[in-house]
Design a protein around this nucleic acid. Structure first.
Ligand code: MN
Ligand code: MN
Ligand code: MN
Ligand code: MN
Lengths: 220, 220
DNA sequence: AAATTATTTTAGGCAAAGCTAAAATAATTT
DNA sequence: AAATTATTTTAGCTTTGCCTAAAATAATTT
C-alpha cells in the first residue's frame, strides 16, 4: 500500500465521514469541513482521482473508491487507537484527545499501529464510543438506539455520544455519564421531552431533550 | 514558544548533534547528515537565521543560538521519550525505535509530552542510553568511559552504545549485552585489543576492539 | 604567489498545497 | 424560457522545501 501526504489523508478521511450521511459529497461541503477553499478542494479531487482514490466528475460531486475507503479506514483506525491511548493511558479528558489524534494518525508505521493495538488490548471503540476498524479495515456497525427515542423503564448502556463538543462533555462529566455507564430511564415528560435518569443507587436527575438526542445506547 | 515545521525541526536537531563534536557545523556536513543538497542547507540556514535560531555568516559555518538550542532540546526530549515508549511499552527492538521516533517527535502537543513522560515514570535515558532532557531542556551529562579504554578486572555497567546500527544491535543481542547489563572485564589481549567479558555466572566470551569502542560504561 | 581544487552560495526551476478573482456550469426564480 | 443566483472550476499567484548548474569564495598545492 502506498503512502499519502498529511493533506491527502485529511481530505480522504473527511470525505469518508461526509459520505456516510449524504452518499455523495460536494465541493463546498468538503471545503467547509476542512476550513479550506472550494478551489483547493477541486485541485485535490483531481489529484485523488488521478490516484484512483475517488470517483469524481466535474460538477457532479465525489465519493471514495473502494481503494479510497480502505485508505480512509486505515486512517480512522489509527485515529481512534490513538484516542483510546490518550484517554486510557495518558488520562487525557474526552474533549482533548481528538486534536492530538488528528496529528498522531498521520504517523505511518504499520508496525507501530499493530503493536499499539496489542498494547491497548485490542479495544473495540474509542473514547467517544466510535468503533475502531480492525487491521483489515473491518468496522463493526452496532445498531445503537437514540436515548431520546426510548420509553420509560428501560435499562441501557451508554455506547456512543454523537456530539463531541467541549460543552456536552462538560455537562456529561458533571452528570457522571460516560461510555459504558448503565442508565435507567425512570420517566419521560411529553411537555419538553426531558427525561429522568438514574445511575446505580444515585439519586434521580434530569436531562434535556437536546442531551438525550446525542446519547446512543445499547438496550440491556 | 513558536511552532516549527518538520523540516525546520530536522535541521535544528541535526545541527545540535553535529555541533556537539565540532563546535561549528559546515554546510556539507549538514547536507550529508540530512541526505539533502548543500544548496538546500544554505536556503534553510537563511531562514533559521532570520528566525534567530542559528548564528550564521556566509562561508563561515553555523551553530545554534541559545533559543535554537532550547528548541533542539525540546525535539530531542520528544524523540527519546517516544523511543523509550516504543521499546518499553510496545516492545520494539532497539534498532526499530529510531525511525518511528523520527516521525513522532514532530507531534507538537506540550501536554502530550508531559503526560507521556508521567506515564513512562519520568525515564532518565532512552533505549540507547542517551539522556532524556527534562521539561526545561536540562540534560544530564554523565561521564561515561569507553569500554575499550579500560583495564582488566573491572566491574562495569553498560550505559550507552554510540553506534546504533542494525549490525551492532544484532551482535549485542546475541552476546546478551544491553543498556544496564553488568559486565566484568576478565582479560585484554594486546595483540588485537580484543577483550574477554563475563556477564554474571555465564561463561566468558570475547568481543573485538571495534565492539568495545562503541560501548560506554559506568564503573561500579 | 599563482594555480588548482573544494566548498559554499546564488540563480533559476519544480512540485505540493494553499489562495483570490474570474469564468463556466448548474440550479432556482421569475 | 429567461433571468438570476449559487456552485464549481479554471487561471494565475504565493510559500515552503527541495533540486541542478553556474558563480563566488576559501583552502590547498604547486
Ligand atoms: Mn489529521
Ligand atoms: Mn473519536
Ligand atoms: Mn524527525
Ligand atoms: Mn536514541
Amino acid at each position: 500500500m502506498l503512502n499519502y501526504s498529511v493533506s491527502e489523508e485529511n481530505y480522504i478521511k473527511a470525505i469518508f465521514h461526509l459520505q456516510q450521511q449524504d452518499g455523495t459529497v460536494t465541493t463546498n461541503e468538503l471545503a467547509g469541513e476542512l476550513n479550506t477553499r472550494p478551489a483547493s478542494v477541486t485541485d485535490m479531487m483531481k489529484k485523488l482521482k488521478a490516484k484512483k482514490l475517488v470517483h469524481y466528475q466535474p460538477y457532479r460531486g465525489f465519493r471514495l473508491s473502494a481503494e479510497g475507503s480502505k485508505v480512509a479506514l486505515g486512517i480512522i483506525r489509527r485515529h481512534r487507537l490513538w484516542e483510546y491511548f490518550l484517554a486510557e493511558k495518558l488520562k487525557f479528558s474526552w474533549d482533548e484527545v481528538h486534536a492530538v489524534a488528528e496529528e498522531l494518525e498521520h504517523v505511518s508505521s504499520k508496525k507501530l499501529i499493530e503493536k499499539l493495538d496489542e498494547f491497548l488490548g485490542y479495544p473495540k471503540a474509542d473514547p467517544h464510543g466510535d468503533p475502531i476498524p480492525d487491521v483489515n479495515g473491518k468496522i463493526e456497525h452496532y445498531s445503537y438506539q437514540c436515548l431520546a427515542s426510548l420509553p420509560a423503564n428501560k435499562l441501557v448502556v451508554v455506547s456512543h455520544v454523537s456530539n463531541q463538543s467541549n460543552e456536552i462533555l462538560d455537562l456529561l462529566k458533571h452528570k457522571k455519564i460516560s461510555i459504558g455507564t448503565k442508565l435507567e430511564i425512570k420517566r419521560r415528560f411529553d411537555f419538553d421531552d426531558s427525561m429522568e435518569i438514574k445511575i446505580g443507587r444515585q439519586p434521580v436527575f434530569t436531562i434535556s431533550k437536546q442531551v438525550a438526542e446525542n446519547i446512543f445506547v445499547k438496550i440491556n
